[in-house]
């Protein structure tokens, strides 16, 4: 699956996207964050305050307990500041 990062998350990680193949036991957005953080110190630091992290699965905003079984694109981003 493809992971997208936006705004200060993108800058702190120094990447706008990455391809990952998470193992079977990674079933939700929260599981995915845990798994990414275990394998990547930059992600562990940038995602430290989970309350500041919003997520979207296949371009739909979801909570962190949402399943990722059918996900082809998962996006992570800080609270939105549009308008």
């Amino acid at each position: 699956m493809n992971i997208l990062y936006f705004a200060w998350l993108r800058e702190r990680l120094d990447r706008s996207q990455q391809q990952v193949e998470p193992p079977e036991h990674v079933k939700t957005v929260a599981d995915l964050i845990d798994w990414l953080a275990q394998n990547d110190e930059a992600i562990a630091l940038a995602f430290e305050n989970r309350k500041l992290i919003r997520a979207a699965v296949n371009a739909q905003i979801v909570d962190h307990d949402a399943p990722i079984a059918d996900a082809h694109t998962i996006a992570f981003f800080p609270p939105m500041t549009g308008g």
Partner: peptide
Amino acid sequence: MDYLKTDAPFWKKETGPTGTKWVDAK
């Protein structure tokens, strides 16, 4: 407008005399 401010995926980054910063959600 109230919904766009918090629910539309845009992020503001300002550049001024003291540098560049991401705008915090209010």
